[in-house]
Amino acid sequence: MFRGVRTVMVFADSPEASARWYGELLDVPVQVDVSDTGAVYAWVEIGGVELGFHPADDARNPRGGSPVVYWSVDDVDAVRELLLAAGCEHHRGPLTIEPGRRIAQLRDPLGTIIGIDGK
C-alpha cells in the first residue's frame, strides 16, 4: 500500500518565496509552476521527497492545515543553531522523546513550522 513519502505540501502565503528560502538553505534547485489562473506552486527536492508550497486559501487550504514535517538529522543542536542563524525562530523543544532521540520545532521565516529529529 504505502511505499514511502513522495511529497509534503505546505500551504503558504508566498509559495515561491518559501521554496526559494529552502532551496538556498539546502543548496538545491527550486522548481516553479504557474497555473493558468496565475497560482504558483513551487518546490524543492531533498532525499527523494518533494517539499512543495501551495498558495494558502482560507476556504480550501488554510494556514495551519499543514502537518509538521520532521527532518532526520545527525545532531539536533547543531542543525537547530544553523536554522536559527538562517532566520528561523524557536517554536518548541528540543525535547528528549526516548533515550538517544531528540526533536525540536522551529518556524521558518515565512511561517511554516518544521521539525528536526535526531541524536
Rank of each mutant, 00 (worst) to 15 (best):
G111F: 02
G48P: 04
A78S: 10
V5A: 13
L106H: 01
L110Q: 15
I113D: 04
V69L: 12
A56Y: 01
A78I: 01
V73G: 02
R63I: 00
V40D: 08
H54W: 11
T112C: 08
G100M: 02
I97W: 02
V34H: 06
C88L: 03
E16C: 08
G52A: 15
R102P: 00
M1K: 12
L84I: 09
G47W: 02
K119H: 12
F53T: 05
R6P: 00
V10Y: 10
P99V: 00
G65P: 02
V40E: 11
A17Y: 04
D77K: 13
S72V: 06
Q31G: 14
D58R: 14
K119Q: 13
D27K: 14
A12Q: 04
G64M: 05
C88F: 00
F2I: 13
T96E: 15
L82H: 13
A17V: 07
G87R: 13
L26C: 08
G38E: 09
R63D: 00
R101M: 12
I97F: 04
V49N: 02
G38N: 10
A86L: 03
P67G: 11
D75L: 06
V76W: 01
W71C: 08
V34I: 14
R101E: 08
P55Y: 04
Y22A: 08
L83W: 09
S14Q: 15
A78F: 03
D27Y: 02
V28F: 05
D74T: 11
D58N: 09
V30S: 09
L26N: 07
R107L: 06
E89H: 12
G111N: 08
D36L: 14
Q31A: 15
V44L: 10
R102S: 08
G93N: 09
V44G: 05
E45Q: 14
V5G: 08
E16W: 03
T7A: 08
Q105R: 10
R60E: 09
E50T: 13
D77Q: 14
H90V: 14
L83A: 12
S72T: 11
F2Q: 12
D36G: 15
I114L: 13
L82I: 02
R6D: 12
V69E: 01
Y70M: 09
G111R: 10
R3T: 13
G38P: 12
I116T: 03
G38A: 12
E89Q: 15
R92W: 05
T7M: 10
I97P: 04
S72Y: 06
E50C: 10
E50Y: 06
V79P: 01
Y70P: 06
T112I: 10
E50R: 15
S66T: 09
G4M: 04
R107K: 14
S18C: 14
V34T: 15
L84S: 05
A78G: 03
G118I: 00
A39H: 11
L25T: 10
